[in-house]
Structures are given as C-alpha cells and as structure tokens.
Amino acid sequence: MVQGCEKAVAQAVDCRAPRVSYRTMEATAALAEPGMLAVIGFGAGQADRDDPRWLTLALEPFDAPAPLECWEVEGEVVAGRDGAIRWSRGGGWLFASISLEETEHGGVESTAERAYRALAAFLAQQPEHHVLRVWNYLTAINHGAGDAERYKQFCNGRARGMGDAFGEGFPAATAIGHLDRRPLLQVYLLAGVQPGLRVENPRQVSAWRYPRQYGPTPPSFARAMRLPGGDALAISGTAAVVGHASAHHDDLLAQLEETLANLEALLASAGMPAGFDTHSPLKAYVRHPADARVVRDFFRQRLPGVPALLLHGDICRSELLVEIDGWRYA
C-alpha cells in the first residue's frame, strides 16, 4: 500500500498544503486533473463512484448546481481501499474516508467506535499518520435527551475507537447532523507525514475541557490546526460559543457576528493576518433553510469575495443556528 510514497514523504517538507477550492464542474473532469487528492460532492443529486478519492456527503447544498470541493496537492496521487476505508495519497498528504450504516453496527455510539477504530488501525500503518483535520457527519445529531443525545453518544464512541491514536493531541474537527433518512455516519480526514500546530481560541474553553453538562465524554478536537509548513490553517467547526456556553439563542445575526469574532480570534492565535480573502474557502452549515438567504447576505457584506458553500445541516447544540468551518491560506 505504501509502495512508491517514499519520494513524496522525503519531499513533504517542501510541499505546500493541499489547496481546497469549490468548483462547478463535472466530477469525472475534476478527478482526471493531475494532483487531485480528493473530490467531495454534496447531496442526493450526486452519484456514487468507484474512485476512492470521491466522496458524496449526505448534506444538501443551497446552491444549484452545487459546486464540488476539490483538494489538490503537488505530486503524483495514488489511491486504494482498505476494508471500508477509501484512501488517496500524494505529496506527503493522505485523504481517508469511511461511511457506515448504523443499522449494521448497533447504533451511533458503536458505529462511531467502529469507524474510529478502523481509521486508527489504518493510520498506524501509514507514513502520513499525523491526523490534522477530521470531519464527522451523522444522522439526527440532536435527537435524545441528556446523556442519551446522539451527539453525546457519538463522542463516547469516538473516544473509545480512537484509543491513543491522538496521543500527540487532538486534530481540528467538525461534527454536523445531516438530514438523510438513513442512519449513516460519514467520517473523512486529512493526515500528513509531519504534525501540525494545534490552535486554541482564547475566547473559548478548549473543547476537551468542557464541564460535565456537555456529556460524559467531552468533544475531542482542537479549534484549528496550522498545517506543517505553516502556509494553511484548517479551521474546526466554529459557532457562537463564548467560554463554553452558547450565545445569542434564537438570534441568527448575533450568532453570525459572534462566530466571525471567534474565527478572527483563531487567526490571531495562529499568527496569521486578520481577515479572509478569495482564497479562503468556508462552509456554513445552516439549521433552517429559511435562514440561508440571511447567511448568504452576511457573507457578502462581512466577508466579501470569500468562497462560501452553504449546506443544510444541524449544529451539535440545538440552540445554535449556524456553524462555519474552512481554510485560511497564508
């Protein structure tokens, strides 16, 4: 599996971070481009493909036609499968994804454990074993009360499955609820041959230090990750949270302003210039479809020119209306 990657590993120090962009084009054409590490499609309108670099997420876009998310690297890309895991590598970077049906694995907690255990075992055998960024999408994330809430159960299973795989520190991450009727868990990640620099937000309590009220297992992620080489910041799912508490219940515009303040705080903590530009792709997960227009107008006014992909998804706390993640390039 690792045959042919030694040259890419040796050159990884000099290679720039994967470039992520949103592009309106056919998936076949995107996958045919040199250096394409991964292509991600969104919603029911996307067909599945045999190429391991292709992933369709069960998140409906508010744009039609929906753009593809393209990850490009410098160097040759090879791809394959390892059980339920699809993977591709190039230039010292690794993309890996796994999609599991809960009905086949006994519920969200055991499915999360199985997914993360499989990913941890796979990564342990790879040169690119430093996990930098993870995305998690699950069904009905807010369903259930107290410790029985599905997001809290997911956190339990994730922690058991990862074991000591993240012993050097947690990666940046997102966890969003999709609206697909299937009880489907989808996890994908970016890993590299070198570790990144974990970034926390001074306006927020680190997620793994959340008090017990947020569940028996605190969320396991860093607020952002500066990638090896320092030329890119991978930003975790960011919402209107101050300290550890949600802010501005039921006030979408106030939540957007608070979220932007948190994003700017992350840039400052990472030692990057303030602001986002035309090369800083961001995803906005919007709970209520009727709010999509307001969110889009906010981007146009407060983040002009920033590529924005708006997706219909539930945030991990039911009182939060929007969450933003994405990339900032130096």
Rank of each mutant, 00 (worst) to 15 (best):
A112H: 00
V2P: 04
G230M: 08
A145R: 13
K7P: 02
A165V: 06
P127G: 12
G106T: 11
V134T: 14
A222R: 02
G75C: 04
V199L: 08
H248C: 09
F122L: 05
K283V: 11
I85V: 11
F298C: 01
L310V: 08
S97L: 04
T28C: 04
A172F: 02
L57A: 08
A172M: 07
E257R: 14
W54F: 13
M1Q: 12
D48R: 14
L119H: 05
W208C: 10
L310I: 08
E109M: 13
E72C: 11
F298G: 00
T217A: 13
L252A: 02
Q46P: 01
M36N: 07
P273Q: 06
L37G: 04
R317Q: 13
A64I: 03
F62W: 07
W71E: 06
G90L: 01
L253T: 10
H105Y: 14
R203I: 04
K283T: 11
I40F: 00
Q194P: 01
P216E: 09
E33M: 13
M25C: 12
E128A: 15
A121Y: 02
L68T: 07
G313T: 06
I85E: 01
L267I: 02
R114C: 10
E257D: 15
L256N: 06
P211T: 08
Q204C: 05
A268W: 04
Y210N: 14
F166D: 13
T56E: 08
R133Q: 14
L190Q: 12
V20H: 03
A118L: 15
V322D: 07
A191R: 11
V322N: 07
L266I: 08
E319M: 08
P67F: 07
Q213D: 09
P34E: 11
L184G: 03
I98Y: 04
R223N: 11
T139G: 07
P202H: 01
L37T: 05
Q255G: 03
C155Q: 13
I324N: 03
D51F: 00
R203Y: 07
Q204Y: 00
R19C: 10
I141P: 10
S88V: 09
P67I: 07
V2W: 12
R49N: 01
D251P: 04
T28R: 09
W54H: 11
L233M: 02
D180V: 01
G43T: 02
S21F: 02
T139V: 03
Y210V: 03
A29K: 05
R23E: 15
S246T: 11
H312L: 11
S236I: 05
L37K: 03
D297G: 03
V193N: 05
